[in-house]
Design a protein around this nucleic acid. Structure first.
Lengths: 193, 193
DNA sequence: GGACTAATCGGAGAGGTTCTCCGGTTGACG
DNA sequence: CGTCAACCGGAGAACCTCTCCGATTAGTCC
């Protein structure tokens, strides 16, 4: 009672914090280079810690991913709110989706992890991107009210389709405009008449 | 010269042929149950052969996949030719894509293998589904001439988008109509106005 | 400035995987 | 039947994930 201040645990020890950051840095590099299936063993070695240390800090691969991506999702949530306030819905929707797809193409396999998270409410990643999902929902509903997005396309549908697009283009060169071209195809429709 | 008849190798030995079929049967079951990443070790064990035998018959996982799927691609090619002869393009394109997506949802990971094959001309799977691609090209070009498919959507684009759809819906129940709903969304477009 | 204690470390190791190599076996054919 | 090329299958190397626990060390109290 006197030792542990009201509310919970004491702050982590300095070495723990240091190791956590070194692991995250190594993970960022490894995931970017080898995709989301990069060897966790290897990440631990490059971070200069044992496998045990890595697994204590991040019990699953998904937990490591979540720690790497949390601020990105936070930024995407902010972006959605900004667009809702400043751009007409007919522009806001494609622009946000384009940013979302770009982020999901950061490394191979990320789109797949994202899809799994979106289907699984218990996942850490799901919780981590909930704020983003809420902001996106608002943006889409605005667009539907304005009549620029079909009523039978739910925000979740669009997220899933965008993830699919990121998946479909994930091994194309990073700076390609191919993803945006296919996104446009998807949004405006393939069939005519 | 006298022993090996002109043109190549003699037919495989009976035990070889038998093992090949047992491996294929075990693979079909394992892939259906556990997805495309099922353990090859396990497949060999269930087929009643050693790992060496499996790897001699099918040097890579992709070779095994190809052997399993070749006739399916052949059937899809036939389906495309049939539709080109019997259905108006505005119906033929969605119907064939729907069948393609259904087949790609046969087991988890198949869409990913397909995507990798479509990007890699050297792959066994690529060669194996070339006939299908050709038939599909014809169908799409007809539809473009008839003005029901956008000119800037290439047959390869549509294939890739359909694979993406299969990926996006691969862990939904097998008998769902969700995939067709999203396919319709994609073909007719999300945005209005 | 020590000494104590709980948090933290990191490597050994179990159990899984892919894939190769090679001595023993067997089907097919003269 | 005998011969031999084709074929088999398991041992094993090299990787992976993940756990456990004895050794270490940061932070605190005197």
């Amino acid at each position: 009672m006197a030792k542990t201040p009201a509310g919970g645990a004491r702050p982590p020890r300095a070495d723990a914090r240091r190791n956590q950051e070194r692991i995250l840095a190594a993970a960022r590099e490894a995931f970017t280079r080898h995709g989301v299936d990069a060897s966790l063993n290897d990440i631990a070695r490059r971070a200069g810690v044992g496998p045990g240390t890595l697994y204590r800090h991040f019990p699953t691969r998904e937990a490591l991913l979540e720690a790497m991506l949390a601020d990105r999702y936070h930024a995407l949530a902010g972006h959605a709110r900004d667009l809702a306030g400043t751009a007409p819905p007919a522009e806001a929707v494609p622009r946000w989706l384009s940013a979302f797809v770009r982020d999901l193409r950061a490394f191979r396999g990320l789109a797949t992890s994202m899809k799994n998270a979106l289907y699984d409410e218990g996942s850490v990643l799901f919780v981590s991107c909930k704020e983003m999902q809420v902001a996106w929902d608002v943006l889409v509903v605005h667009a539907q009210v304005a009549g620029v997005v079909r009523q039978d396309a739910s925000p979740a549908d669009l997220l899933r389709l965008a993830a699919a697009l990121a998946w479909a283009t994930e091994d194309l060169p990073e700076d390609t405009t191919e993803a945006d071209r296919l996104l446009d195809l998807m949004l405006t429709g393939v069939m005519r008449g």
